[in-house]
Design a protein around this nucleic acid. Structure first.
Lengths: 188, 188
DNA sequence: AAATTTATATAGATCGGTCTATACAGGAAA
DNA sequence: TTTCCTGTATAGACCGATCTATATAAATTT
């Protein structure tokens, strides 16, 4: 069956927001690209801000679902590494233009506390998943390891647009492996 | 002596662009905040895009000057660490809202190739300085070390708005120290 | 019959950018 | 000394385009 108008709008808005930015993307361009009339958008979303919020929520749900799936079927002691790889796959496939949550935080920090909080919550949610994965790998005692890996993932989000996905992801895996190896050899 | 109108405009625009975003900041708000009339801006800058370019160029020059100074007076074998600390100081003092170059890349990627290239050049310039520092520390043989540290610095840019400067910078230093220690113990 | 989508018109604000005209400096030329 | 020129700033009107959002009625779909 064809996607509902609402889903068309969500998908189109997500793409345009991600590629062109939130403030630089007007309502008219979204409805035109979605092949829908403007009133249809306002029939489904109360405002542009509500549309942005829906886009971010839907995207994060998809992302966290794919991350959870990857971690769930990771072999013993490989949860953290599986999460990092899942993040890399996502980045390569859907985030060539950088992290949409980071973009949202930047554009709405002093403009819409709700959007900013929503995007920030998405990021801290990933950190929480990372901490769970580290714990599952028996490295929970190593304070700061999850946050260190998180820092590297955040770096890969911006670096992919600078050095390309291949280099950025290879560097990311190399640094994460170093962090994991150091943590494992630390018998404290 | 009082700052010239041009400098007032540059400083005001830099602050507003950084806090509110580029597209979300209108010409009228800049001139009002700078205490200057509209035509004065257009007397000094050909367009909003030219103003953005001038802001980014001035900011990068200040940043790279302060980084160079820190690296220049670093003790033997501490160039990389000095650069990382200088980056952290800058982040803490002037970039609580994240990296302005990353913001510019996000907002102008599909909108102005010139601005995007300028911001990207600023970032690769930092990477080049990082590679020079790593070389100076006698770790140039370690392929990818500079890019690994760069990845972490990039991560700290976005994480500072999420976890606060204190946590973000402490984590950054911890990861960088791990990378440096691993590189030094690698006798290859 | 009910819900959704379309088409179209409109509201009012804001956008980047241009325009003319005026004021007032400081330095150069008479 | 006086006159003139140039550069810079102010003031405010003005342009077309675009922005988000709403109103209403007809057409379509379920």
């Amino acid at each position: 069956m064809p996607a509902s108008k609402r889903d068309q709008l969500l998908a189109t808005a997500e793409r345009l927001f991600h590629e062109q930015g939130f403030h630089a993307t007007g309502i008219d361009r979204i409805v035109a690209a979605a092949g829908v009339v403007r009133m249809t958008l306002y029939n489904h979303f109360a405002s542009k801000e509500a549309l942005v919020a829906a886009v971010l929520a839907a995207r994060h749900e998809r992302f966290i679902t794919s991350v959870d799936a990857a971690v769930a079927c990771a072999s013993q002691g490989q949860a953290t590494r599986a999460l990092v790889d899942a993040h890399g796959d996502w980045l390569e496939r859907y985030s060539q233009h950088g992290c949409i949550m980071a973009k949202a935080m930047g554009e709405f920090a002093e403009h819409s506390p709700e959007i900013h909080a929503l995007a920030a919550a998405a990021k801290t949610d990933l950190l929480a998943h990372l901490e769970a994965a580290v714990e599952r790998d028996g490295l929970g005692h190593h304070a700061g390891l999850a946050r260190g890996v998180f820092l590297v993932l955040e770096g890969s989000n911006t670096t992919v647009a600078l050095l390309g996905a291949q280099t950025a992801l290879a560097d990311t895996r190399a640094v994460v492996d170093t962090l994991l190896a150091t943590a494992r050899s630390d018998t404290r």
